[in-house]
Amino acid sequence: MAKAHVLSQNIFSPLGPTARENFDALCKGLSAVKIYPNNIKSDVPFCAALFPENFFENIDQQFTPFEYLLKASIEDAVKIAGIDVGAADTALILSSTKGNVSKLETGGTTGTVKEAAGLTASAEKLAGYFGFRNKPVIVCHACISGTLAMITAKRLLDAGKYKTIVVAGADVITRFILSGFQSFHAVSDELCKPFDADRKGINLGEAAATVVLSVRSPASGNAVIIGGGGVSNDANHISGPSRTGAELSMAIDQAINEAGITADAIDFVSAHGTATVYNDDMESRAIHLAGLQSAPVNSLKGYYGHTLGAAGLLEAVICIESLLNNTIIPTMGFEKPGTVMPLTVCTELVKRPLSTCVKSTSGFGGCNAAVVLQKDKDNYRSDAPVNKN
């Protein structure tokens, strides 16, 4: 089975346009989340991580804001990786939950608008812009989209379908999207508090993230791989997660088993951590069932909000940076334990040797996904320079 090496990674968010800038911001305790007392996206105050309202005014008009974020993120990651995207053995996978849904808010529901709002239109536009020869693959599976896209890429590499795959994901927050979450009474009007006893809901966020995966290892010697991946479904409720956590635990177990390791090899868990009552409780049960209750757990939602289709990718990129820099990011907003099963929530910046972590995600419809990210023990030099891009 071929190894899925990470050749490069990017995050394009309100905290910065590169993975390194984003990671440094998190190490400094900076957050993109803030309160919006008045905003065209909502009639009531809400808390979110958004680009400035004028940010997209001067972008290339051939791209929508959603497509522009993807373009910027892919551009940086491809440049760092130094790959030929037009090669016959190279592919593009795009993940998103909403894409250009904003077109339906302003353009009506004509056939032309519906076609332009579809993810196929965006994927083909971006593939054409960069010169990908192969037809892009689209992953749209609620909030596990980014994680599932990475698992899909690993499986395509394992099967020998491609040698290199660019995996990119993004979402932007529109009035339509925000109102949907508000209808569930799930949106907090203050900084979210993952796993905290006083948590009251999510913050949404917008961003793009990209990883370039390949069967070829990077020349630098700083090799991180996707060791394994797992997917499951609760079959419980369209919006409510499992009450037992057994299904997310199943996905985590699958990822760990595929990586050929045991739970005690996991240095930390990057959880979904939405700061909603039921999700956080479900995750606490799943982490215990997976035997990871002693591993440090963090949630990045206090820095970025929930970036939907980009979340799994964006948070995996921070995991990669954490492994390369031997640093675990703390959970912003957490103060008082409040989950049904106790967790070892990381509350301060931890610097120590790291080799392996789990990134987990869950979403509407009961979907769950997890990946194991680890330093490639056969191709890793502790003295190799860390990518500063």
Rank of each mutant, 00 (worst) to 15 (best):
G201D: 00
S382M: 15
M250R: 15
S382G: 15
G245R: 00
K193S: 04
P385M: 05
Y380W: 15
G260F: 05
E315R: 15
G305K: 09
N389C: 08
I173Q: 03
L191S: 12
M1I: 11
S242A: 06
G128K: 12
K3S: 11
G312N: 05
A235D: 02
I11E: 09
S294K: 10
K163L: 07
G228R: 15
A310Q: 04
S249Y: 01
G229P: 14
L7E: 08
A168T: 12
S362I: 13
I287Y: 00
S299R: 05
A316D: 09
I261S: 11
G302I: 09
D158K: 15
F51G: 05
D158L: 09
A81N: 06
Y303E: 10
M282V: 00
R175V: 01
G338N: 07
A259N: 09
S270W: 10
S217L: 13
L126N: 05
K28C: 05
G16W: 04
G365E: 00
A48R: 10
L324V: 06
K34V: 05
I80S: 09
A72R: 15
G205L: 11
I328H: 01
I261D: 05
G227F: 09
H141V: 13
E75S: 14
T344I: 00
S270R: 13
S42C: 07
L7N: 11
G240Q: 12
D383H: 14
I144Q: 03
C27P: 01
T276C: 02
G86A: 04
G99L: 11
L126V: 06
I11Y: 10
K200A: 12
N39F: 07
S294Q: 08
I83C: 02
K359V: 06
D24F: 06
K351H: 11
F23W: 12
G118K: 14
I80L: 11
C357V: 02
G86S: 07
N387P: 12
R285D: 02
L323M: 07
S102K: 10
T110S: 13
V33W: 09
A81I: 09
G227T: 05
P194L: 02
L30G: 01
M150L: 15
F176N: 14
G229R: 13
L92A: 10
